[in-house]
Design a protein around this nucleic acid. Sequence first.
DNA 1: GTTCTAGAAC
DNA 2: GTTCTAGAAC
Length: 760
Amino acid sequence: MDVDGDSSSKGEEEKRNAMVVILVGAPGSGKSTFCDHVMRVSTRPWVRICQDTIGNGKAGTKTQCLTSAAAALKDCKSVFIDRCNLDREQRADFVKLGNGQVDVHAVVLDLPAKLCISRSVKRVGHEGKLQGGKAAAVVNRMLQKKELPKLSEGFSRITFCQSESDVQAAVSTYRALGPQDTLPSGSFGGQKNPDAKVQLGIMKFLKKVDSPVNEVSKIDSLKDSVTNDVTKENDSSSMGQEDIRVIADEEVKRGEDLALGSLEGTSSLENIPTLAFPSISTADFQFDLQKAADIIVEKVLEFVTKHGNARLVLVDLSSGSKILSLVRAKAGEKNIDSGKFLTFVGDITRLYSEGGLRCNVIANAANWRLKPGGGGVNAAIFGAAGPSLETATMERAGSLAPGKSVAVPLPSTSPLFCREGVTHVIHVLGPNMNPKRPNFLNNDYIKGGEVLREAYSSLFEGFASIVRSQETLNKEPKEKIGSIHLEAPVDFKRSHMNQFSTADQKVKREGVYESEGNKKCKGFHEEQESKTTGAGDRSDDAENEKNNGSSSKDWGFWAQALYRIAINPEKSKSDVMEISDEIVVLNDAYPKAKRHILVLARYEGLDRLADVRKENLQLLRTMHDVGLKWAGKYLSEDNTLIFRLGYHSAPSMRQFHLHVISQDFDSRHMKNKKHWNSFTTAFFRDSEDVIEEINKFGQATIKDEYSLLKMELRCHRCRSAHPNIQRLKSHIGKCRFPFPPSLLQNGRLVVATDEDGTNQ
DNA sequence: GTTCTAGAAC
DNA sequence: GTTCTAGAAC
């Protein structure tokens, strides 16, 4: 860092290096504290422009702020714009202060509403005078208007903070800036979809770094991947299937539009060869995270300096991933080119289909026998790649020593190849610090470090050699990574993971399960009655990582009540209202609204949404129609009701079932956050959308239950936040705000119609 | 899925 | 002291 106290002689230069940092955040989000923490130790001259105090210690006007900010800049000082700046219009004039001469940054303090409210309520004598009971209403109202900043507004850098630790990281970044320093351009901190107004879970924000999940459908995710990644051309070598090509072509078109039309310049060069790799040895092999992060960054740096035309992506499934944040921080310190290395939260087997990130090579944290199973990444990759990967692997090697890797070309029949565009899997075996696993190093981190370095070297070399061979094939040297600034190390915080716990991945059901196909129940009710489906076929493999290869979910006895009814509806004690060959309709035993019924599928093997495939389309339509019929019946009795039809992403009860539920949520059984969020977040998958997705993609997007169900409590109509379920319930009893636009589309809400058949 | 309950939050 | 949450048991 170049610290220079002699400002007079360097005035011009300093002016060039001054910057405008626009804080964006609700009252109570910690904007002033942020400025204080930076300014207290910074060697750069800062001026804080605070609208709450600018009028001689009292609140002033926006114009006053603009004038003072301009004066400070003229004086070669960097400025913090400390006001809410929650919408684009409010920010625009401050962005213009940069005048193309100085960098304009945004720091977004996007903390949970509840936290902002409680801070606002508690604060005494705060400059903004926002105290007491009105704070909640004010914060809520302001958050409704919230438009997260985009680079296209004219910011050169945006930092999104969604937790206390994000804020800490941003403070450190800014306080470390000397008078001459600049920061890399781009969008940082993981808000992939700037329009998502999703917040962190309320209660846990201090205990763990939770992350939001975008409430977008798979189709939307493809769209917004375009806004971040401009596709230049389709890489025919990595695409095998017609429908993927179609999607890719659409991306190209939109991408071009975008490149012409806006500054959304966080383009990532999709065609550059990309290796996605998990952190080796830090999960089940219990390698120290700090030490591992150092080694990752060291090896990545080595690679990126040597290879211009390739990109590395460190992937982790869990959004609060410690290793990702450690690596991100260290990579930032080393100024690793963000176009060549990024971190990504998501399922390594679904990077393209669910994350919009194209990776032609993925690394597998393998076991020494190179066998499927175990848990974690290994099980996921073998599961997703299908049996052909095992065959192809065995052709190359029978086992692997720690520190070594083996690259295996994926057969073009593998779903990973067709769907994700992955051409190679590189198996890597890292050092093991877990006494229960083979080759235990007994805390010998000297040896461990060596082996881990060797593992990454071997992995990256394997990748480089694939890149070389593909370049030769294409006979056309790829364009060097361009001058357009790239977004990263960005943590996209995208998690569409199905059936994964935060720590472990389970093999996809269809992978190992001794499938009986989707036989109809009809005709074999009795034989099924006695059949247990509990434990599944656990095949523990001692040297494999934790979590056995069991593919079927362990449904407890209580969780099989619906299954028993589907098989034997006549004998059921529940109030079954309709029975056909295909479906059973019954009242939910614990209705979460005035009207809440279930339409059960009577198909053996269809336990949940994740099991549904294209061959079940007709069933989906039947269930939807039956649901509509019953909703219509209830609407004819009470035309004030509004219904929504949909599926839980990860149901607790076995047997595929459709919820038909009125949107009053007026029920004594609506008791907790999980109940609420399961019907009012993206966890609830609208029936119409599911049908569309199954039709287009052959399977439905499953939303990540672990974060969605813990989200803070928000009104499903006006989106206001509430501290607990009781307060929420008293609010929804009164709230008559129109439903959000997304729900008003695509027939997601079912309302009463008058005689003409028009909506009332 | 619900119920029960310890203990955290208020 | 009361309310509320989250985890375990069922």
